[in-house]
Simulated scan of single mutants.
Amino acid sequence: MAIEVNGKSIETTGSGYLTDPNAWDEDIAKVIADAEGIELTEQHWDVIKYLRDEYLNNNQNQPMERQLLKDMGKLWGTKPTSKDLYKLFPLAPTKQGTKIAGLPEVMRKGGY
């Protein structure tokens, strides 16, 4: 499969994840988010950038939700709950967020 962004064809897996994380840019994120029914806010971008940084600069780490909550709390200066993150990414923050961030699909089962 592929998505069209700015006249370029970007390859994706059958479930819509980019096959090459390095092909990602913010325009691609917007197209994926739109397909997921998400209008990106600054908090969405914080999560997306965090997930990309963890993957690309921390040995391909794909953090569990608990770690995401802790690190977003530090960044936002509040203590977000799982409910807060699910308002941003209704189909699971670490999975749907990862998809929009252009990273490989998280294959683990749920987990907090």
Rank of each mutant, 00 (worst) to 15 (best):
L88F: 14
T98E: 01
D27S: 13
N58A: 06
G110T: 08
I48L: 02
G97Y: 04
S15W: 06
K95Y: 06
L40P: 10
Q96C: 05
K30N: 08
K70G: 06
L51E: 00
W76D: 00
G110S: 10
A35E: 09
S15Y: 09
K79V: 11
L103S: 05
K49V: 03
W76R: 11
T81N: 02
N61F: 10
A92W: 13
E65L: 15
P90S: 09
V47D: 04
T94I: 12
T19N: 00
H44C: 11
T81A: 02
E26Q: 15
Q60M: 10
K8L: 07
K95R: 10
W24E: 01
K79M: 07
N22S: 13
D25S: 07
D46R: 15
I38Q: 11
R52M: 05
P93M: 14
D71H: 13
I32P: 06
H44A: 10
R52H: 07
R108L: 13
D84I: 05
K70C: 02
P104G: 02
G16D: 05
G16E: 01
G111D: 03
G14K: 15
T41I: 04
A23N: 08
E26T: 15
E11G: 11
D27M: 10
P63F: 04
I32Q: 02
N59F: 08
R108F: 14
D25C: 06
L56C: 11
A23S: 11
L85M: 13
G77D: 00
D53G: 12
E26V: 15
E11R: 12
G37P: 03
E65G: 13
N57R: 11
E105Q: 14
E4Q: 14
F89K: 00
P63L: 03
T13S: 04
A101Y: 08
A23L: 03
N58L: 01
R66P: 03
T12R: 04
L91H: 12
K8H: 11
Y50L: 15
I48S: 00
L88A: 07
M1G: 07
H44P: 09
P93N: 15
D46H: 15
W45Y: 08
P21M: 04
E42K: 14
E42N: 13
D53T: 14
A23Y: 02
V31K: 14
K79P: 03
Q96D: 01
T19W: 00
A29S: 14
P93E: 15
T78K: 07
D20I: 07
Y17E: 00
E39H: 11
I48K: 04
A23K: 10
L40N: 10
V31I: 13
I3C: 01
Y17P: 06
